[in-house]
Amino acid sequence: MSDGRNLSERTPMFAKGNLVAGAKDLMLRNIAVTGLLALIIISTFLSPYFLTVDNIFNVLRQWTMVGLIAIGLTYVIISGGIDLSGGAVLALATVVGALAAPIVGSAGMIAVVILVGAVCGYINGALITWGKVPPFVATLGMMTAARGLALILSEGRTLTADLAPEFVFAFGRGYLGPIPMPVLLTGIVFITAAVVLKYTVYGRHVCLVGDNPVGAHRSGIQVEGVIRSVYTLHGVLAAMAGLLFLGRLGVGEPTGGMLFELSGIAAVVIGGTPFVGGVGSILLTFVGLMVIGLTYNILNLLSVSPYAQDFARGVIIVVAVMFSIRREAKSRARR
């Protein structure tokens, strides 16, 4: 990946120039954006219910939890790693939250849950940097262990959480105008994460660590510290997703968030972030997330047989990634 081009050349999202040309460039070179637009246009024709404010906000709210995990995953994958523990940490967070809420109140519960997520993420980072465990294996272990811990703490049951109405409003069922609160919160996190990745020194360090760890180290960057920080961030975001789960559904579910990490990874790769790290875009991860979310939605709205849906989703994910990789290769060949 170290072919000397900077990010603004590699990811069209950041290309300078006038807006129209930029948009055209974006459409042509990024299959995810084109695919999303095509999906929206086709779906609008297929179902009269699709392009309604209610439906779009439903879809956005359904995918807030996977979205938060996908943000964490974008950072992790850009840094050259992978994290499989998102769904399990989410489940652990909901269980801990449901247990903690009656004891420490809702504000304290938020703190405890975020701390649990941070600890899980930090352990992943520590295993990878100090323990020299490959990220896939370390986070696979965390995935299994966190879900096990969630089952132990809940004794295998779904726990009904005793939550303050303010918490339920802010994290789950409330609205600000037409916008559901979880969508608003997740939107803020998306924008913050995008700005941090693109405009801060820390964000640049994450990219450099993924692109060229040796160079990063020689230029004085704490490579291992950056790696631990991205896994911790991922853990915190997965725990935040757990808070949204609690707010919306009102229960701690040890089997909740099953396979969310895989949907998150799919969103990241459809958004064009390569597995080898070094580059990537939070906004394109959002586009990838919506490609998956709207695919689920339109198949549901059309009442397609549930079994055919899984098949269709699998095909769409693979085709989307195949095209985004081809585009990448072609654009490189042109240079």
């Binding site: 309604t52 439906n55 779904t158 919306r248 559904l249 579910e253 549901n300 709205l301």
Partner: peptide
């Protein structure tokens, strides 16, 4: 599961 059922149901009643 709860979360999956809620999401599916939202889509179902939309259509």
């Amino acid at each position: 599961r709860l979360q999956e059922a809620v999401a599916a149901m939202e889509d179902a009643v939309t259509a």
